[in-house]
C-alpha cells in the first residue's frame, strides 16, 4: 500500500514537474550520436535489427485492398533473394483495411497496427474516436495508433487530453496503444516533453512522434526528448514504455543513428521491436539495398526492389 502511494506520488510529481528542455543541449547531444561510425558486422546486425523494427505504413486516401495486400506480402517477404531476413514488426493501416491486412498476414508474426481516433487530425468527438478504436480492435488490430487532441493540449486543457487517452486505452483491450503526439504541431520541446509525460501517465504503451502528415515529422531532437521522458518514467516506476519515431526516416544511415541514440539513452533492453519501432514506408527498401550492397559489394538500384 505504501509502495503504491509512493508510485502515485512520483507520478504526480512527474506530471506537474515536467522538466523544461535545454534545446541547445539536446542539439549537441544529438549531434554526438551522429558521429558514431558503425561498420562491418555491427552494421549488418544493426540493419537487420532496423528492418525488424519497421512498421510498414500506408495511410493514404487512395489505399485499396490490393495495395494493402501487396504491402502485407512485402512485410513477410522483404527481399527473397537475401536469405535469413527478418520480417518487419507490423503493418500500419487505416481501420477499414485492418481485416484485409489481418487475413493477408495470417500465419505470420507480423502485427497489424491501425491508426484511429479520427487520424490524422483527431478533430472528432470522443464517442466517434471510441467507436473508431473499437471498430479497429474488433476487426483484429493488434496495435492502435491514436492521435492526441493537439488543439486542446496547446490550449492547456491537459486533463481533457489525459482523459481521452485513458478512455481510448480502455477501448483497446489487449491491443497495445501507441499515442501520437504530432510533435510538428507542438512547437516546442517543452511541450513535447509535457505531452510525453501526459501520454505515458494516461496509459500509453508506446509514444510516437508524428502522423507523417505534418512537417516536420520525426527529428532526432524530438525523439531524444521523448526517450528522456521514457527514461525518467522507467527510473521512477520501473515500467518500460515503447518509442516510435515516424515520418521522415528514409535512409539506413539515419535509422542507425536512431538505434545508437536508443541504446545510449535507454540501453539494450529497448533494442527490440517490442519497445522500439520505425514508422516508415520507404526505409525498408533503403535498408534492403544496403544489405544487398554488403552481400554483393556493388551499389544497388531501386529497379531491383519491390515498389512501395
Amino acid at each position: 500500500m505504501q509502495m503504491k502511494k509512493d508510485i502515485q506520488q512520483s507520478i504526480d510529481q512527474l506530471l506537474f514537474n515536467s522538466p523544461t528542455i535545454d534545446k541547445v543541449g539536446v542539439e549537441e547531444r544529438v549531434a554526438r550520436f551522429q558521429t558514431r561510425s558503425i561498420k562491418g558486422d555491427s552494421k549488418l546486425q544493426a540493419l537487420k535489427m532496423a528492418l525488424n523494427m519497421i512498421d510498414l505504413t500506408t495511410l493514404e486516401g487512395k489505399d485499396s485492398p490490393g495495395k494493402v495486400q501487396q504491402m502485407c506480402y512485402k512485410a513477410m517477404h522483404l527481399h527473397d533473394e537475401l536469405p535469413n531476413l527478418p520480417t518487419v514488426a507490423a503493418v500500419c493501416v487505416y481501420p477499414s483495411m485492418v481485416k484485409i491486412a489481418k487475413s493477408a498476414l495470417l500465419n505470420s508474426k507480423v502485427n497489424v497496427a491501425s491508426v484511429s481516433t479520427a487520424f490524422p487530425s483527431g478533430q472528432a468527438p470522443l464517442a466517434v474516436k471510441l467507436a473508431d478504436t473499437t471498430f479497429a480492435v474488433n476487426e483484429g488490430a493488434d496495435e492502435i495508433d491514436m492521435v492526441i487532441s493537439r488543439g486542446k493540449f496547446l490550449a492547456g486543457e491537459y486533463s481533457f487530453v489525459f482523459d481521452e487517452i485513458a478512455a481510448i486505452k480502455d477501448a483497446c483491450g489487449n491491443a497495445r496503444l501507441k499515442v501520437i503526439l504530432e510533435t510538428g504541431e507542438l512547437l516546442t520541446l517543452d511541450n513535447v516533453r509535457k505531452a510525453s509525460d501526459l501520454a505515458i501517465l494516461a496509459g500509453a504503451d508506446f509514444i510516437k512522434t508524428s502522423t507523417g502528415k505534418i512537417q516536420p515529422a520525426a527529428t532526432m531532437q524530438v525523439t531524444y526528448t521523448m526517450l528522456m521522458a521514457i527514461k525518467d518514467y522507467y527510473e521512477a516506476t520501473g515500467k518500460m514504455i515503447g518509442m516510435k519515431p515516424a515520418g521522415g526516416i528514409s535512409t539506413s544511415k539515419l535509422a542507425l543513428h536512431y538505434l545508437v541514440m536508443v541504446k545510449e539513452v535507454l540501453g539494450n533492453a529497448w533494442l527490440s521491436n517490442e519497445w522500439f519501432r520505425f514508422g516508415a514506408s520507404s526505409l525498408a527498401n533503403d535498408v534492403l539495398m544496403q544489405l544487398m550492397k554488403a552481400e554483393t559489394g556493388v551499389y544497388q538500384s531501386p529497379d531491383y526492389f519491390s515498389i512501395d
Binding site: 559489394g297 556493388v298 551499389y299 544497388q300 538500384s301 531501386p302 529497379d303 531491383y304
Partner: peptide, 8 residues
C-alpha cells in the same frame, strides 16, 4: 570499378 558495377 564502382561506376561500372553500380546497378543504377
Amino acid at each position: 570499378p564502382t561506376l561500372s558495377t553500380h546497378m543504377d
